[in-house]
């Protein structure tokens, strides 16, 4: 997990959202009922008919996240489609629901609920309504690991609108989010224990056995000076087999490891190359 600092590109991010609201208002003399929907479809004339949503992604979000999914760290260019994650759900009913996300200081503070925004008089911005506020938007993968199954396995689409603490915006996330040697992900400040349904890793599906194995292989390679991008997959897997601590690793895990001899699994592994630079604990 990487900390996403929403102050660095704040000016550019806010600028695009402001332009969108101005543009919509100039055209219709009103503000949209469904903010996010309008944001996704409104076209920006000044930028040669690019949609505002796309501009925000291209000019701000993708750079801010180094091209990686905000949760699982998959390389976004490799998934079928990238999705916009609302840290505070677009569908949040009212301000009190948003407040649950603001128990710790982050850039989310001060963003009005989209409904409240419309009743401001006069309407001024920024701060922007939560549905389209740059500070509330992240890029996530589509959770479709092999680009073939329609049911998302992880991240934004797996989470849906479930409550999830905005931990990627916490500046101490580097210290409090750990990976174990066998690939398990854990946010140590999670108030919900691992077995609870509200546990962040469960909501996001980050400890699915396939994702755990992806990380485990990367960690093994880093520890043993192997580079999966250069080595043959059979060589890496065969080497790793010799080092496995059997029987602490069960047959199911071994089978999962051996799956990576298949091309489609190996391709997935390479899409998680961000783990090459991450240390396990």
């Amino acid at each position: 997990m990487k900390y996403i600092d929403k102050t660095l590109k704040k000016q550019q991010g806010e600028q695009i959202v402001t332009e969108f609201l101005n543009c919509f208002h100039n055209r219709t003399k009103a503000y949209p009922n469904d903010m996010y929907k309008a944001f996704c479809s409104e076209i920006d004339d000044a930028h040669n008919h690019v949609k505002f949503r796309q501009r925000l992604i291209d000019e701000v979000l993708i750079q801010e996240q180094d091209g990686l999914c905000c949760y699982c760290m998959r390389r976004l260019s490799e998934c079928k489609k990238m999705t916009i994650e609302h840290v505070m759900p677009n569908h949040a009913v009212d301000k009190t629901e948003l407040d649950k996300y603001r128990t710790r200081a982050t850039e989310l503070d001060g963003l009005p609920h989209s409904e409240d925004f419309k009743s401001l008089s006069p309407i001024t911005y920024p701060p922007h309504p939560h549905s389209i506020a740059y500070q509330n938007l992240l890029l996530s993968c589509d959770g479709n690991l092999f680009n073939e199954s329609p049911t998302p396995q992880c991240c934004n689409l797996k989470r849906k609108h479930t409550f999830l603490p905005p931990f990627v915006l916490y500046s101490n996330i580097i210290q409090t989010f750990i990976y174990t040697e066998d690939g398990m992900a854990e946010w140590q400040e999670d108030p919900e224990p691992p077995e609870s349904k509200g546990n962040a890793m469960r909501i996001l599906g980050l400890n699915k056995s396939i994702l755990k194995m992806v990380r485990r292989i990367w960690f093994f390679c880093t520890d043993n000076n192997l580079n999966p991008q250069k080595e043959e997959k059979d060589f890496v897997i065969n080497t790793m087999m010799g080092y496995l601590n059997f029987p602490s690793m069960n047959e199911e895990d071994i089978n999962m490891l051996l799956n990576f001899k298949k091309d489609k699994y190996w391709k997935l592994l390479l899409e998680y190359d961000a783990f090459a630079t991450i240390k396990h604990c």
Partner: peptide, 13 residues
């Protein structure tokens, strides 16, 4: 050593 490690896994299967 590695051979016997893998041999153990095979025995298990």
């Amino acid at each position: 050593e590695k051979m016997s490690n893998i041999k153990e896994m095979i025995k298990n299967v």
